[in-house]
Write a protein that binds this DNA or RNA. Sequence first.
DNA 1: TCCCCCGGTGTAAAGGATTACACTACACTG
DNA 2: CAGTGTAGTGTAATCCTTTACACCGGGGGA
Lengths: 334, 334
Amino acid sequence: MHRKTPLITDVAKRAGVSTATVSRVANSPELVSPATAQRVRQAMQQLGYRPNGFAKALITRSSRVLGIVLPDFFGDFYSELLRAADTAARDAGYHLVVSSDARAGSEDVASSLPLNFLDGLIAFISFPDPSLLESVVGLSNSVVLIDSGEHTHDVDRIRIDNASGARSATEHLLAQVPASRCYHVGGPSSNFDAVERATAFAATLSEHGASPASNQIEHGEFSAAWGYAWAMQALEAQPSAPVAVFAANDEIAFGILQAASVLGIAVPERLKLVGFDGARLSTITMPELSTVQVPLDEIGARAISLCIERIRAPQSPYRAVTASTRLIVRSSSR
Amino acid sequence: MHRKTPLITDVAKRAGVSTATVSRVANSPELVSPATAQRVRQAMQQLGYRPNGFAKALITRSSRVLGIVLPDFFGDFYSELLRAADTAARDAGYHLVVSSDARAGSEDVASSLPLNFLDGLIAFISFPDPSLLESVVGLSNSVVLIDSGEHTHDVDRIRIDNASGARSATEHLLAQVPASRCYHVGGPSSNFDAVERATAFAATLSEHGASPASNQIEHGEFSAAWGYAWAMQALEAQPSAPVAVFAANDEIAFGILQAASVLGIAVPERLKLVGFDGARLSTITMPELSTVQVPLDEIGARAISLCIERIRAPQSPYRAVTASTRLIVRSSSR
DNA sequence: TCCCCCGGTGTAAAGGATTACACTACACTG
DNA sequence: CAGTGTAGTGTAATCCTTTACACCGGGGGA
């Protein structure tokens, strides 16, 4: 009555060959004579045969599926990263399983991915809790960490060069506005990137002989709401002299832009604004947002290639890659 | 030298039981005496045992992994949908593999997912090419289609009630502005949702005795750039009397909002604007955007539950669910 | 006392592919 | 003509778990 899904033996029977030959047609055609291959392929077609992935993976010890853990699904930042990773993975014949709760404990990371099916794991964890990192690293043989700060573990890593981008942005602002009217609207103080960006901002000010007042650097979250809230209370009180703000990411900058519009503060005339990330959002704000570009596509692709290379050569030395950042000046700050 | 990963037999040996008992401890603990279970668990712990997913899936015929195909990774719309689906899946003990090129052919859909590992498939395909749909349906035993228009195939489906939302929005605008100054800025004419929304707009105008001029409904794409471009050329020429615009999604509306700001057209005084989707974007624009809310979380969760129910009961009758939409009036249109 | 039932456990048979190894037939070499 | 290499194919072991079925011992009913 109900047709069972065809097995390799069915194909073999139909084509008048052994299962080994059928398998070879699928996996190493060069070992099979063209005539036989043709017959086998036809049999596959007619039966609608598709190899059972589990059986294949069981003996092959490989699923060609990678897991990727991101802090969030939302926002252009992760979308772009994910897209790049997905493309790179596909080009290499791999698939991606995504998960989004990196800020939860590692048990969650573990339970949020079908770990038993993965050939490798890429984790973007910006809350550098050493024990969390340690356990994530233990989750798979081939782990790549993105942007997880310092660590003691042997593992492949990709770092974002927050400091140099933040420096460029700050220098750029300092060239236009005195240090005392330069502000940094930061991300969460528990977030690795946020801290690095804030630190670089402070350091750059210091190098210019200014020691930033406490209200010149404030931490919040990576959201437009935080940027808006900050701006509403900080900018309202400002005299008419121009102010410069370096936001820890584009979302925050976007919020600040909205507040400026409400407050009637002209950008860039009275407010010089620079964001961070260089994601899509920065190109659709009005005015267009100056930003520090993070090479998301490069990071995504590199993460995949590091992971795949480790799968191929488990014993090779661990590598650390730094993704460089670059200031892009647009109309919000000139 | 190098420790092999522990097998179920290792655990069994160490705990002094058979592999069957070990397996039972993991899968149906109620069959095992507490004392034995305790010993086995301890052995698992000590060895760091994790069952081989492939072997398990092979015999179980189930991976508890679902695939989901979306048109895109970008934008709040899909992010929210994905998040809801992911949450629902996780709650049900399933994992999600995502893929993003639904507008490509079905071969691409097939190659973009590790089909051989999936228990089911959820596909959001808004370009209702019948043969594409047909082949996607054939990709897995348990397929759920989201919003793929009419179709002849037996398959579970979720539809977005575009028409009723679009009607409400249009009525809302007609209550404030004469029909001759109501515009619809549509999405791609090949997109199912876009067409339904445009059609409902036109129908509502007709019901009010107005037959929309050709320039009152234009198709473009679901992007801020398109909305901006449309507004720059359409709104510039407008007299000072207020105009109403129903955008086919929030992104487009966002672009229109930007253009209005550039053109110095006050919203909502001179331009009444309503979007569609009700994603996050609509809440962070200035002014806040009236929109037709699509219950993304409900859709995501329902898609998962339909899929899982089909897996459980492959022979049950196919179902079609309609997700209702609802107008949310905010400051951009009142 | 005998039997039945049942909780707890073990044995061994799947599950469906890949691939090491063995083999055949034929073409060449010397 | 014996010997060797090679292209093409088949046989059977293997990957690691789950689970149907068998078994065993003891408590309770008749």
